[in-house]
Design a binder for these strands. Structure first.
Lengths: 295, 295
DNA sequence: GCCGAGCCATAACTACTGCTTATGATGCCC
DNA sequence: GGGCATCATAAGCAGTAGTTATGGCTCGGC
């Protein structure tokens, strides 16, 4: 049963005549007449009695009209809901972000989004980039905020069918204990750190540190490992080693006793958004991606 | 928003891929793909994310799917209801019938209909033919059981846009008091009744009596008038006059003291069904008309 | 590591659906 | 009784909605 015919039938019932329905639909009378004939053939019985004064529903016609009204109602609700979602009067988007971003730029972006679209809900999941990509691919989040280092072969999208949009390049800084001999220098060369104990972070941060050291001609003496930039800074602060941390980490938390030294040779880290192909077609996702990009 | 596209979208969601939906619908993959594109254009946002492994709904897609399910449900119910009505597992038909028929052949017909189709309800309204036709035209009944006499100009359908189907010709009989001088004769001529007091019924029955008498060359002395065949017979029984009654009336009720004399000259009455053009397209109405015709 | 089998989209073509125009019949109303 | 409303039907045409053909992409297996 063609549901469009049901709606045409409903219009006929509403206006009380085939000609009236045709006018309401912007069609000619025979067009509606033919649809009704087809509908009655499908229905297997007469739905309305024709007279020169108009038409009148039969019992099956009245039964069918109730269903047609219900269908029209559902279509109306569907249009309403879609309009709400596209105009961002409603919506929900799930975001995965790495810890230091989740502590800094993500809350700011969420606040900006809420200011313009208070009924768009953002669900945040803290996750390191590899996990974030997995969440993206499994459909558990709509958008991921990840980072990559300027090292060859470090592709944030992981070679998968995902769209990577880099947003900001941030410098990587050296963390030194306050009483360290190098802490007095304005700039520190990587080679100066060859004999130091090192503290490294997550897998990819560790790889970056190793690469930076390799470029300077040595393999670092890795003593401690932690994803957590608060932990890393506390280790550095008490003199247990040196470390490289991206700028966001020290923006999120800055240990009073840690000396931060910038340096080109420490490299840069780039953060940005990743999403599945086409995911920005969902207004709420696009809005969050946009507000993250302007942050 | 084209509701057919909604159902196509639902099939895609159900099968998890565009190709799968196309197979289920007996179409090719591009046909479904194009419908989805059109639906997304109507919706104003992306409804599903395409991947090489299939598709996955977005948030607006999930919202729309709920509506699509509701529409599909309504269509299913519509088909079910129509099937019940066409197969006479359910239904309702409103009948108007004149009193003597309502007392005799209509109950028998209703009983036969109930035997074969117990859930088809018949609503009976007792009404003399003119009133029955009015009920038919106002849409208050679906079928009318009316009668007409074999007099010129007596058209049961009343010249209106109604379909008249004659069913049975029944003789009209003479009612005589038991001790009447003519009661001993086997046959009575109309002319023999010229000096009798007469009892007549409804407007059209009265017209028939006047016509029968006029044919015999006299105008009857009408003393009493009553639609009710029980009243008429009681008046005759106590000798207050003679009367003409159709056979159905004496089948419905036969006063013990009334002498019934048949006679060709008394004329015949024809009963049958009347309905609006196309009304038999409704199965319940057709079934009642059919069972009345076989009665 | 590459080929095949899925998935998807797009472009171009075609045929049939679905509308229009034209016409006729009927009934109501002034 | 003529004009205007309703309806249906037939015939014709155009645009929708399918088709076929093609290409890109991933995943999985040999």
């Amino acid at each position: 049963m063609d549901p469009r015919r049901l709606l045409i039938f409903r219009e006929v019932a509403r206006s009380g005549s085939i000609s009236g329905a045709a006018r309401a639909l912007g069609w000619t009378q025979p067009a509606v007449s033919q649809h009704l004939r087809a509908l009655e053939r499908e229905a297997g019985c007469t739905l309305l009695l024709r007279a020169t004064t108009g038409v009148e529903l039969t019992e099956p016609g009245r039964a069918l009209l109730a269903r047609a009204d219900a269908v029209a109602g559902e279509l109306h609700v569907a249009r309403e809901e879609l309009a709400e979602l596209t105009s961002l009067r409603r919506g929900r988007v799930r975001l995965a972000a790495y810890p230091s971003a989740a502590a800094t730029l993500v809350p700011r972006a969420m606040a900006r989004l809420r200011a313009t679209h208070p009924d768009v809900d953002v669900a945040l999941t803290e996750a390191e980039p590899p996990e974030a990509l997995a969440l993206l691919e499994s459909g558990d989040v709509d958008l991921a905020l990840v980072f990559g280092y300027d090292d060859p072969g470090d592709d944030p999208a992981g070679g998968r069918a995902l769209v990577w949009r880099p947003l900001v390049d941030e410098p990587v800084d050296l963390m030194l204990p306050p009483d360290h001999r190098l802490a007095r220098r304005r700039s520190v060369a990587v080679a100066d750190l060859a004999d130091q104990p090192w503290i490294v972070g997550c897998v990819r941060c560790r790889a970056h540190t190793l690469r930076v050291c390799a470029t300077a001609g040595f393999e670092p003496d890795v003593r401690h490992e932690s994803d957590d930039y608060v932990v890393v800074q506390n280790l550095v602060a008490v003199g247990l080693g040196v470390a490289l941390l991206p700028r966001t980490a020290t923006e999120a938390f800055r240990h009073a006793d840690v000396v931060v030294r910038p340096g080109r040779a420490f490299g840069t880290r780039t953060y940005g958004t990743v999403h599945r192909e086409g995911a920005l077609g969902v207004p709420a996702t696009a809005a969050l991606a946009a507000v993250l990009a302007t942050g």
